[in-house]
Design a protein around this nucleic acid. Structure first.
Lengths: 114, 114
DNA sequence: CCCCGAGGTTTGTGGCGCAGACCGGTTGAC
DNA sequence: GTCAACCGGTCTGCGCCACAAACCTCGGGG
């Protein structure tokens, strides 16, 4: 086995600092999550105009976030028009918090002298 | 009201908050830049073990950063072995600073009530 | 000579972000 | 009744790109 402990390093051993949650890390989704962090629940159109995303893009990001359990999508009818809203789940809130914490840690690497 | 000024929104009008520098935003590269922020110059192997990246991955990220003018790559020979080092350029330092500032701004969106 | 390891670079490829086309259903204008 | 717009969402096509594996080069054994 030649003991690849750390010397080899060629493997997939990314340092935890870089192992950021990609689901959250994507700017568009981070924007969504950030908005939801403050408003707790937001309508589709609001998110779209607030973030400047195209419908398709927003929809797919929302789906992805829902699949990951970070947001909850609720669809209701207002009059006869469908209306989609998104809200952060507890897991989502935690993921966001963890994300910021991780970024802070990463940022900290640059502040201390090597 | 027809008012397509901003209402249309379907266009490519991403809010500046989300318009983050993708070159910096990538975790691996952010790690590289962060390390370079503190040490000013680092050897390839050091970066590799510090960040836990594979050779190829590190090499391509470094190339990309160089292409973007954020880092400067210098290759010399130590004995008979090639040795690659990377250092932050002024533009790179600025890009990193701007990146963090932007993230702070984005994060701030979540803290204030909407 | 062949083989191997160290140090990097180039290549292959699967995944994903993005915008726009299409799909319903509804409402208002003509 | 027809047409267009709005709302919401899916799907498709495109292009980029992160990742790792293959490859290259040089030096040192056996």
């Amino acid at each position: 086995m030649t003991e690849p402990a750390v010397g080899a390093a060629a493997g997939t051993g990314a340092r935890p600092d870089l192992d950021v949650d990609r689901l959250v890390h994507e700017p568009a989704r981070l924007g969504i999550l950030t908005v939801l962090s403050s408003v707790r629940s937001a309508e589709f159109l609001f998110l779209q105009s607030a973030l400047g995303l195209s419908k398709g893009n927003l929809s797919s990001h929302l789906s992805r976030l829902e699949a990951g359990g970070l947001v909850e999508i609720s669809k209701k009818f207002v009059g006869k028009k469908p209306q989609t809203s998104a809200a952060l789940t507890p897991a989502g809130a935690e993921a966001v918090a963890r994300y910021w914490a991780q970024l802070d840690r990463l940022r900290g690497l640059g502040r201390q002298d090597g």
